[in-house]
Design a protein around this nucleic acid. Structure first.
Lengths: 195, 195
DNA sequence: ACCTGAACACCGTTCAAGT
DNA sequence: ACCTGAACACCGTTCAAGT
């Protein structure tokens, strides 16, 4: 039974060398994640950053913290995009476009979709990022429902869940075209036309 | 770079003790998978079976072979069920019911959905099981399409992929009710009513 | 023909010793 | 305040020595 280290809120490092090491780690993680997936060995990340493995753990007590450092600002961009799309003429189309962007982000690093979904229940920084994303989705879903474009009983968790599932399928190599799958899924979320 | 051992077609063991060990391993794996998920340590399975780890590897050169030994006959049951459902009055409902059974199987052991999806590309016994399942799904999809109940452009790979994705979501704890999600998904696969 | 378990590789995580 | 890397735990996989 190896307890996974709890995520702790670390203050910004005071010493200049520590800040530099932190930045190097994030950069190394970014490229390593992109090349080898979000489950790349942490020793590999430390090696690429040119620091000891202990230094990595000092800055990022668990893998999710490192993932958050890499994708956190992209999640914020996604949130900002949602705010813009809230003013769109076609709310269902807006939701659809936004989900596509969310899928793109998740597909960017193999294993990210799974990490994000797992973080839905957790406590750390990545979990907070997930909840920011969920709040953004919620606004778009509410808007689409207001206009009558969505089934009344569909929840945000279901919408985001299905989008994550699409991202996961693409990651697994079981789907070439995310757009195609998203279209099928979003069609199922629409208000039934005939009754 | 650790090469994963290739799946090899092993003949049924000749010696009685070997057959007994094999059977014990499958039983131990069945309970271990159910309790701890399909990624339970193989040493744990060997321990429960009361055999050495080397014996496990002799009978099941890779984890997927063990998984197939545990779920293979349930896949065959699924295939048989599909054949019965081919005669149903409501082909879309039949497809829907069958997908539910497929999801139930995958959800039975945590991690099985991922293993099955990954096996879609591979070579071993589990890959063959996946392809039997895919052929069964294909017949049901074709039937539902004939009757005009499905979008004409939907492929079997997409249908099965989305069902696996639903199973994965449930495994991740992101959905309580598989039926609910399957309804949403299947609705997206239906022939659009209004055009 | 089959079994066993020691041996090795790999990776995650901690911590004593350093600056 | 921070860094380092040796040390330990855990698990996958192989293989020499056995029956």
């Amino acid at each position: 039974m190896t307890a996974t280290p709890r995520a702790v809120d670390r203050p910004r490092p005071r010493r200049a060398d520590a800040r530099r090491n932190r930045a190097r780690l994030v950069e190394a993680a970014r490229t390593a994640f992109a090349e080898a997936g979000a489950d790349v060995p942490l020793e590999e990340v430390a090696r690429r950053a040119g620091v000891g493995i202990g230094t990595l753990y000092r800055h990022f007590p668990c893998r999710d913290d490192l993932i958050e450092a890499v994708v956190g600002d992209r999640v914020d961009e996604l949130v900002a995009e949602a705010e813009e799309l809230l003013g769109a003429d076609d709310p269902v189309g807006a939701l659809r476009r936004w989900l596509r962007a969310a899928v793109d982000l998740a597909v960017g690093y193999r294993g990210l979709a799974a990490s994000l979904v797992a973080a839905a229940q957790g406590e750390g920084r990545l979990s907070e990022a997930f909840r920011r994303q969920e709040a953004a989705a919620d606004a778009l879903v509410a808007r689409a429902r207001e206009v009558g474009g969505l089934r009344a009983d569909v929840t945000t968790a279901e919408v985001l869940g299905l989008a994550s599932a699409v991202a996961w399928l693409v990651e697994q190599g079981r789907a070439t075209d995310p757009d195609r799958l998203l279209d099928l899924v979003v069609d199922g979320l629409r208000r039934p036309a005939g009754g």
